[in-house]
């Protein structure tokens, strides 16, 4: 490789850093959504690179549903402390007080209340005019249509048929009072890129991504994690069994499936991702209902 050529990962890195710096240049009060997953970990790592040697010029915001894995909370608190970032945690307390859960209320309603409404409330409360999210275009077909700077109206909603054209690497950050923008610096990354970059940069990730024997519930083709404090979310007749498995994506415990795997280190995960025949979103219950990702995005979901 000649001296002046960048690998594709380094090109993606340069593009993401460019996007983050434009946001800080164009907006008054940005925030970075941090979901503790692998994409968030990569996004946060890129942000540290973008503003080095200064501290991050924006806080991290975790919209917590209360249903995240204990390992995620543990990782979140330790890592944020280690890198000295400012973390804001917000929950939709109203819905949680009313006992919102996917089993009784349905997955769509639960996500709508705990994630979408929780996010919209947190963004409004913080007065943020720009929010970084780690979504990638390769994840899902409506996300393939998403802009890097995605304008949201004052209700936080997406109008996919009327998106602002995005040309060259020039981003138009002008918005009206009350509007905001969701920014996706990882738009052009694929799942494979994320894993290869985690390996290349040695980025810490939640241990749930690595294979281990875990107590699981087999529900149809899905492997759902078993946690004692969530026994009321089990369906009739379900019993936990130990399964060697790992998580390709991390969401809420009752709604995130695992995959059978023996990949216990990053090299094995990269190899597994390269050979995968099915997309990572397959293990997310939220993607499988009649209420599609496009519908949820229109309502304000990431």
């Amino acid at each position: 490789m000649s001296a002046h050529k960048l690998t594709q990962l380094k090109m993606l890195e340069a593009e993401s850093i460019h996007i983050m710096r434009e946001v800080v240049g164009e907006f008054r009060n940005p925030v970075m959504l941090y979901s503790v997953g692998k994409d968030s970990s990569v996004m946060l790592h890129l942000a540290r690179k973008a503003f080095y040697p200064a501290a991050l010029p924006f806080p991290l915001l975790h919209v917590d549903t209360g249903y995240k894995f204990p390992e995620m909370y543990e990782f979140r608190d330790a890592y944020v402390k280690e890198i000295g970032a400012e973390l804001i945690v917000r929950k939709n307390d109203d819905a949680i007080a009313k006992g919102m859960n996917p089993k009784e209320f349905g997955v769509a309603r639960c996500c709508g209340a705990l994630k979408t409404q929780g996010l919209l409330d947190a963004l409004e409360e913080g007065g943020y005019d720009a929010a970084f999210g780690g979504a990638r275009r390769d994840e899902e077909r409506s996300r393939a249509k998403e802009r890097v700077f995605s304008i949201r109206d004052e209700f936080g909603q997406w109008d996919p048929k009327n998106q602002r054209p995005e040309l060259w690497n020039i981003y138009n950050g002008r918005i009206h009072e009350g509007e905001s923008v969701r920014v996706f610096p990882l738009s052009n990354w694929t799942e494979m890129d994320i894993w290869m970059y985690i390996r290349e940069e040695n980025i810490p990730i939640v241990p749930l991504y690595y294979a281990k024997k875990r107590p699981m519930i087999e529900r149809g083709a899905m492997l759902i994690p078993y946690y004692k404090h969530l026994e009321d979310q089990l369906h009739a007749g379900e019993e936990p069994t130990d399964v060697m498995c790992r998580f390709r994506t991390l969401g809420c415990m009752p709604c995130t499936g695992a995959v059978r795997s023996d990949a216990t280190n990053i090299d094995e995960i990269v190899a597994e991702a390269a050979a995968a025949k099915r997309s990572e979103r397959e293990t997310r219950i939220i993607d499988h209902g009649a209420n599609t990702m496009e519908d949820k995005k229109k309502e304000g979901y990431f």
Partner: peptide, 25 residues
């Protein structure tokens, strides 16, 4: 990718797709 496109059977907006070979992304 959009429901309106599938309903109308036309491509309205740019969609970004990703593929890779051992040589290139």
């Amino acid at each position: 990718g959009l429901s309106a496109e599938r309903e109308q059977g036309i491509t309205i907006d740019v969609a970004y797709r990703y593929f890779a070979t051992p040589k290139r992304k």
